[in-house]
């Protein structure tokens, strides 16, 4: 009985004999489903994102999005980007085009990063100097204008967290109606179970703690800018969970 685990479990079981738990059922029924959206999901997504102070730029093709992003980097005078591994960026040739313009692509993985705490901290300090982040996403949620990202081999968490500005690449065929629809989709549960971190991002970081006044950029990015692309170049939609590796011809 000294073992706190059995102590707590025994207490729970003993308490449950006397617990008044109104409306408790043995199994939970399926959740209510909302009526489907009558407008295209991409329109709903874009509007919802703007409503939470995010920005949404829409493009017909990945090439248009790439050109826009290159112009943005030039406008901002960026020399470094904190991003996913270049092969995981879902616009073909983007990494190549950025490097050709002298922009350094940095991803969180570097040798020795995880070994000693001092190295880890120095490494984080270095990454935190980079002002712009670039990632793809695993899914978009129309109702709330949210982005879903899973951490994995080539997709670090820091690129969407450390920089002041986060650019995210989203294809229209990745948009689900809402959180419930995404969670119910085939592959989602496995994807969550196999990643140490799944994050759902809904607009830029915010706080209303000081003076109860909404202010952007508390700890995370001050700006979230989504490049929403209509058509894939290769016309193949990846299965949910497979994500959008660039499929080089």
């Amino acid at each position: 009985m000294n073992d706190p685990r059995s102590l707590i479990l025994d207490r729970v079981r003993e308490a449950l004999k006397r617990a008044y738990t109104p409306e408790a059922m043995d199994a939970i029924p399926a959740p209510p489903a909302p009526p489907p959206f009558t407008q295209p999901l991409a329109d709903v997504f874009a509007r919802a994102l703007e409503a939470v102070q995010g920005r949404c730029h829409r493009f017909e093709s990945p090439e248009n999005a790439r050109d826009f992003f290159l112009a943005e980097m030039a406008r901002r005078g960026a020399s470094r980007l904190l991003c996913w591994e270049p092969a995981a960026l879902p616009i073909p040739d983007l990494a190549h085009a950025l490097r050709a313009r002298g922009i350094e692509l940095v991803s969180a993985h570097s040798p020795g990063y995880e070994r000693a705490s001092t190295d880890r901290k120095a490494h984080l300090q270095e990454l935190a100097q980079i002002g712009i982040g670039l990632t793809g996403v695993a899914a978009g949620l129309a109702r709330t204008g949210s982005l879903v990202l899973h951490a994995d081999r080539s997709r670090g968490r820091l690129a969407s967290l450390l920089p002041t500005i986060h650019y995210a690449i989203l294809y229209e065929d990745q948009i689900f109606p809402d959180l419930a629809a995404w969670l119910a989709a085939a592959g989602t549960a496995a994807r969550i179970a196999n990643s140490s971190n799944t994050v759902i991002i809904t607009g830029p970081s915010r706080s209303a703690d000081i003076g109860q006044t909404l202010t952007l950029g508390a700890h995370g990015p001050k700006e979230v800018i989504v490049l929403l692309i209509e058509n894939r170049r290769h016309g193949r939609r990846p299965a949910n969970g497979e994500e959008n590796e660039t499929i080089e011809p």
């Binding site: 951490a151 971190n197 994050v199 809904t202």
Partner: peptide, 30 residues
């Protein structure tokens, strides 16, 4: 879906983190 709406009137809070174990050996950070 009901938490953020009830708390602050947001449809979802800005960050919902689903933390499923420590960094996997193949992952970049965490």
């Amino acid at each position: 879906q009901v938490l953020a709406r009830s708390a602050t009137g947001q449809a979802l809070s800005v960050y919902t983190s689903i933390i499923t174990g420590p960094r996997r050996s193949i992952e970049e950070d965490g």
